[in-house]
Design a protein around this nucleic acid. Structure first.
Length: 813
RNA sequence: GCGGGCGUGGUGGAACCGGUAGACACGCCGGCCUUAGGAGCCGGUGGCCUUCGGGCCUUGGGGGUUCGAGUCCCUCCGCCCGCACCA
């Protein structure tokens, strides 16, 4: 007869079918907010099939969800799809397959695989963001933002990707290139839709202190928002009679300003130079600067360039006329597009002054060489301020400016408003109508959703492909009834994913985006899990939406995600998996061969989940071997009457095994509570299984059954099918309905321990000592050890350190 | 340049408060079982030396604090990530 073998293909579908049939993981709306847990993994973008990164994300999330359930919480663990987006549309342009068709096919593949992984999802709440029943509410939320002035249309210099033929958000431009396709972005002057995220800049920075996120993610958001405190100071150009405000973080150095610089994009540059001998030079310089890529221009090491404007402005603190320049090191996007230059205390201004032979005047004595950015007392400034520490001088000078009407305290941000319109097809239509007579008119709520029409040609032509759908575009103005045209731009897909976690709470609501009472019970997300690549974009937009909706009275939380975990990447041979490298591991193939439990356990066992890890086939086999050993323990063990209780009378081997089981309970519980130490949790279960094998000849069947059932119970969050199978066989019970096991303190302690005997900090011997021994007993015990005596004899013991339960250290001279 | 992280056996990693460095796993070596095994079970495995008692060395390098340092402090080297002319 063939030896029985661990066969996941026989076990896994059986449990998956049971969970599906009984809707085991579905939860209702009547949740006790004190005992709820909302566990959420970032929703997948459905393209092709899931990859190994998805497996890791959902293995982590499912382990957390299971642990929370079994420790007494009602867990919301939903799933959906971020279904709009450029890849499906580009695929359509190449192959002719409609984006909806390819996206739905991919969603079907994701559903199939998630079920085959046995992830505990409440499928009743599932949706794709491309379904009208979802994007109807995306449009409704847009209209709420619009009615409060948080959505607006404005002409601005925007980033244009020539390859994708669409504008991009600032956040989607990396090193001057399109984050998606890598094409160098161009600047264009276009009228676009924006969301006023800058209104929330302060709160987005301040509230980072209220959430448990990895410090580096918070740092990235702080850097991105780039809050700096300073002052706005007005410099007047008498020749034109125009005031130019500048932003500075160093009002204490105002007396050291020796020139003034404007960005080439500044709208007044040409007007200023007109009629001066520099007119032609300025025009040429500006034209050159505008054609340069932002990446070349941004290089910090390039020499400073610029030309004089032939005009002066007056420094408000001392009435001095200083020369004006145009130079590309000043950026139009930041501050006011013009700066006061203080070469003595700013490295960039210093470099420019050196290159152009401009005066350099020290006004702060920081004690260093020029340019000196250190703190120190003010010098050569003004009798009222000289001698004052520069930090105090900031306040004093700003107060003075304010009184004189020449400036005021000010805060500046690097953050820009969020550009959300895209000239592409496969996205959520922006629900407004353009009317000659009435201007921009919101589509009435009753007419939502504005359904995305079917089109034939998805190719971008610099305007949205929707513009070609004449029947759809032509519409009666909702306000005056006259001829009007629909907005043909669609929304950035990040809008869709900025509120999906709210919709999950009340996913089938046809009357509203959500019922505030239901959302109040579930929100915020207790544990959010995903890749660090979303540290700025998605995570900041979602925070912005949450705050905006809270202000509208739709939510009672200020932050969407209380705790965030960012998982590391799984690489292969040290490199990112990619089709072009040919090093891709397909989860589907792997699950087919070894089972979902092995695949899930391995991605958790491979290392600390927040770190990158390299995939190894041998390592995965080791995990498979472990699961097979546990399965065999279950298969060879006699099923118990009911449950698996520890007998009262324990022999030596029984006691050792019982202790190990309780040690494992304690270890796994600690590793899952607050930390994400799945790798060490799994290794603790491995130790328990190893001890079951070591002691199985000597321990009683009852103890062995208890230890095996405990191992199954503990491994359930990582390998749910196998755990259910083994636990069911041994106890006749459903492991997911069992409370998480509790370690018995009496079995965690032992009456003896191994005393480490050190001489001068070096380990010289070990001996078993009674737990009840006094410090004196332990000292005596250690001094008796032969190898300790060999190192002590002939020396004077000058000190004895005793760490109870651990060690004795004899210090000799 | 600024900010953050990391550096431990042949490999992935463990060591949570300063207290036995190397748990667990891979790989490798040996044994058992077997017609056979790439299955399974048991054992060994940081390096050097050894009179087989044990000794010395070892957590990127150097220094320090301490009875005791992978862990704390200083310094240097290397790697990774984010930001980068932001006034």
């Amino acid at each position: 007869m063939a030896e029985p073998r661990y066969d996941p293909t026989a076990i896994e579908p059986r449990w998956q079918e049971l969970w599906a049939r009984e809707r085991t993981w579905e939860v209702g709306d009547d949740v006790d907010p004190a005992r709820k847990s909302y566990v959420l993994e970032m929703l997948p973008y459905p393209s092709g099939e899931p990859h190994i990164g998805h497996l890791k994300t959902y293995s982590v999330g499912d382990a957390v969800a299971h642990f929370h359930r079994r420790t007494g919480r009602t867990v919301l663990h939903p799933m959906g799809y971020d279904a709009f987006g450029l890849p499906a549309e580009n695929h359509a342009i190449k192959t002719g397959v409609a984006p909806r068709a390819s996206t739905d096919a991919s969603i079907a593949a994701f559903q199939r695989e998630f079920r085959s992984w046995g992830i505990s999802i409440d499928w009743s709440r599932e949706f794709g963001t491309h379904e009208p029943r979802y994007y109807r509410w995306t449009q409704w939320l847009f209209l709420q933002l619009l009615s409060r002035g948080l959505a607006y249309r404005r002409e601005a210099a925007v980033k244009w990707c020539p390859n994708d033929a669409t504008v991009l958000a600032n956040e989607q431009v990396v090193d001057g290139r399109c984050e998606r396709c890598g094409a160098v972005v161009e600047a264009r002057q276009l009228e676009q839709w924006f969301l006023r995220i800058t209104d929330y800049a302060d709160r987005l920075v301040a509230d980072l202190d209220t959430i448990e996120w990895p410090e580096h993610v918070k740092t990235m958001q702080r850097n991105w928002i780039g809050r700096s405190e300073g002052a706005e100071v007005v410099f007047r150009c008498e020749a034109l009679g125009v005031d130019y405000p500048v932003f500075t973080t160093r009002p204490d150095t105002l007396f050291g300003a020796t020139f003034f610089v404007m960005a080439p994009e500044h709208p007044d540059v040409e007007r200023l130079a007109a009629g001066t001998p520099h007119e032609a030079d300025v025009r040429e310089y500006v034209n050159r600067a505008l054609t340069e890529s932002s990446e070349d221009r941004g290089a910090t090491d390039r020499p400073k360039s610029g030309v004089p404007l032939g005009r002066t402005v007056v420094n408000p603190v001392n009435g001095e006329a200083i020369p004006m320049y145009v130079a590309d090191y000043v950026l139009m996007e930041y501050g006011t597009g013009a700066i006061m230059a203080v070469p003595a205390h700013d490295e960039r201004d210093f470099a420019f002054a050196e290159a152009f032979g401009l005066p350099i005047r020290r006004v702060v004595d920081g004690g260093g060489e020029l340019p000196d950015t250190a703190d120190g007392p003010l010098v050569d400034s003004h009798p009222d301020f000289d001698g004052l520490g520069n930090r105090e001088a900031i306040g004093a000078i700003v107060d003075w400016l304010d009184r004189e009407g020449k400036g005021h305290a000010s805060v500046n941000y690097r953050l820009r408003d969020w550009l959300i319109s895209r000239q592409r097809y496969w996205g959520c239509p922006i629900p407004v109508v353009h009317c000659e007579a009435c201007g921009i008119v919101p589509v009435p709520e009753a007419d939502l959703p504005v359904v995305l029409p079917e089109v034939e040609d998805y190719a971008p032509k610099g305007r949205s492909p929707l513009a070609a759908a004449e029947d759809w575009v032509a519409v009666a103005c909702p306000s005056c009834g006259g001829d009007a045209r629909r907005e043909t731009d669609t929304m950035d897909t990040f809008v869709d994913s900025s509120w999906y976690f709210l919709r999950y709470c009340d996913a089938r609501d046809d009357e509203a985006a959500w019922d505030p009472a239901i959302v109040a019970a579930w929100m915020g997300v207790d544990q959010y899990i995903g890749g660090v690549e979303h540290a700025i974009l998605h995570l900041m937009y979602a925070r912005f939406f949450t705050k905006a909706f809270a202000d509208m009275g739709l939510l009672d939380v200020q932050e969407p995600f209380k705790r965030l975990f960012t998982q590391g990447m799984i690489t292969r041979d040290g490199a990112k998996m990619s089709k072009s490298r040919g090093n891709v591991i397909s989860p589907a193939t792997y699950v087919e061969r070894y089972g979902a439990d092995t695949a899930r356990c391995y991605v958790l066992f491979i290392g600390p989940p927040d770190q990158d890890a390299d995939w190894s086939d041998e390592g995965a086999e080791g995990v498979h071997r472990f699961l097979a050993r546990l399965w065999r323990l279950g298969a060879e063990s006699e099923p118990g009457e009911e449950g698996a209780e520890l007998p009262d009378d324990l022999g030596e081997a029984d006691l050792a095994l019982a202790r190990k089981a309780h040690w494992a309970i304690d270890k796994v519980t600690a590793d899952m509570s607050g930390r994400f130490a799945f790798n060490t949790a799994i290794s603790a279960v491995m130790e328990l299984v190893n001890d079951c094998y070591r002691l199985r000849e000597r321990a009683t069947a009852e103890t062995l059954r208890f230890a095996t059932a405990t191992a199954a119970s503990l491994v359930f969050p990582f390998a749910p099918h196998l755990a259910s199978e083994v636990y069911d066989r041994l106890t006749g019970r459903r492991v997911w309905e069992e409370p998480w096991p509790a370690a018995d303190p009496a079995l965690l302690e032992s009456d003896t321990f191994e005393l480490v005997c050190q001489v001068n900090g070096k380990v010289r011997d070990r001996v078993r000592a009674p737990a009840s021994a006094t410090d004196e007993d332990l000292r005596a015990l250690a001094r008796e050890r032969p190898n300790v005596r060999a190192h002590v004899d002939g020396h004077e013991v000058v000190r004895e350190i005793v760490v109870p339960g651990k060690l004795v250290n004899l210090v000799v001279r």
